[in-house]
Simulated scan of single mutants.
Amino acid sequence: MSFEGNTLVDWPAFQQARSELGGGFIRILGYFREDGVKSVAAIEAAMRAGSAAALIIPAHTLKGEARQFGAEPLADLAETIETIARDCVELHDTPDAALEHVARLRPLFGETLTLLEREANPLVPRRPAAGGFGRRAVPSGFGAE
Rank of each mutant, 00 (worst) to 15 (best):
4 E>L: 12
6 N>H: 11
8 L>P: 10
8 L>T: 07
10 D>A: 11
10 D>L: 06
11 W>A: 01
11 W>N: 02
13 A>R: 09
16 Q>D: 01
18 R>N: 13
21 L>F: 02
23 G>L: 06
30 G>E: 10
34 E>K: 13
35 D>E: 13
35 D>S: 10
35 D>P: 06
36 G>V: 02
36 G>F: 00
39 S>D: 07
40 V>Q: 03
44 E>F: 02
46 A>V: 06
46 A>E: 06
48 R>Y: 08
53 A>D: 12
56 I>T: 13
58 P>R: 03
62 L>S: 06
62 L>Y: 03
66 A>G: 01
68 Q>R: 15
70 G>K: 01
74 L>Y: 03
75 A>W: 08
75 A>Q: 08
76 D>I: 06
87 D>G: 07
88 C>G: 02
89 V>D: 10
89 V>F: 13
90 E>Y: 04
95 P>C: 04
95 P>G: 03
97 A>C: 01
99 L>G: 14
102 V>F: 03
103 A>V: 07
108 L>S: 00
109 F>V: 13
111 E>H: 12
112 T>L: 04
117 E>W: 11
118 R>V: 05
120 A>Y: 11
120 A>E: 10
123 L>Y: 13
128 P>L: 10
135 R>K: 13
135 R>E: 08
137 A>Y: 13
139 P>Y: 09
139 P>S: 09
139 P>C: 11
139 P>R: 06
140 S>I: 15
